[in-house]
Simulated scan of single mutants.
Amino acid sequence: MKYCAFLRGVNVKGTNMKMADVCQVFKEAGMKDVSSILASGNIVFSSDKKVSDLKVILEKSMSEYFSYEAFLFIKSLAEIEAFWKGNPFEKNDDFHSYTFVGNGGVETVLMKEFELASKTENEKGEIINDIFYWQVPKGNTLDSSFGKILGKKSMKDQFTSRNINTFEKILKKMNS
Rank of each mutant, 00 (worst) to 15 (best):
F114G: 03
K55N: 13
E64K: 10
K85R: 13
D48K: 10
V106S: 07
F89T: 03
E168P: 05
I57Q: 08
V34E: 00
A70S: 02
K169C: 07
V56M: 14
G104R: 15
N87T: 03
D53M: 07
V22M: 08
S46D: 10
G9E: 06
K112R: 11
Y98S: 06
E107F: 00
L110H: 02
S47H: 00
E115S: 07
H96Y: 11
K173W: 12
K2C: 06
D33K: 11
G86T: 05
K112M: 11
A78S: 09
G41V: 04
E168L: 05
N165V: 12
N129F: 08
Q24L: 13
F45A: 05
D93A: 15
E126D: 10
Y3C: 00
T141I: 10
S145L: 08
H96P: 05
S76P: 04
N140W: 14
F71Y: 15
M62R: 08
S145P: 07
H96S: 06
N140G: 14
N87C: 02
E79F: 00
L54Y: 02
K55S: 13
P88F: 06
I80G: 03
S47Q: 01
V106I: 09
V22L: 10
D143P: 14
K124N: 13
F146A: 01
L72C: 12
G9V: 08
S36Y: 14
V101Y: 08
K91F: 11
G30M: 00
N11C: 03
N87G: 03
K18H: 11
